[in-house]
Amino acid sequence: MRIYIRVWLKIPDAEAATVKNTLTRRLGFQNQISDVKKERLYIIEVDSGDPAELAKNFAKELVNENKESYRSSFEDLSFEDGYVPIKVNLHIEDGEAISTQNRLHNRLGYRNIRDVKRATIWKLYIKDDNQEEIAKQITESLLINPHKDSYEILSM
């Protein structure tokens, strides 16, 4: 069973703002991009338990609700309309994901956890008709370094 936890900042996200500034002021996308937002995504594989209850418990450990909000879903990962979601994750070993898995499994006693993966979801609000091509250009020019990151355009 797979649990998705999407986490985003309730306070202004300086990193997303910097990406938007760089795209519009430095990389020539000022006519194509209207906004950039960002989320953190955890993909947690478990082999037993109530997913809703588990998601709530995991979120207590993974989300700082003073500054962050989250949404969980099970089996399917879906996104709202209005933006292009790009999933960026390390294709080399992800130390933070391993640490998170170890923390949940070994220290906090969730023995039903099989795997934890972590990714960043960049939400690109694109004004251009050719959304897929623009999203690809933006991702490859700024959001990833192909020698350590891989990406996937999740829905159009």
Partner: peptide, 21 residues
């Protein structure tokens, strides 16, 4: 071209990861 990356530190000792970051 961007032909390399300076990725997150991964400290390996005796074949095991002992530290990160």
């Amino acid at each position: 071209r961007v032909d390399m990356a300076l990725a997150q530190n991964v400290m390996v000792s005796r074949g095991k990861i002992v530290r990160r970051g």
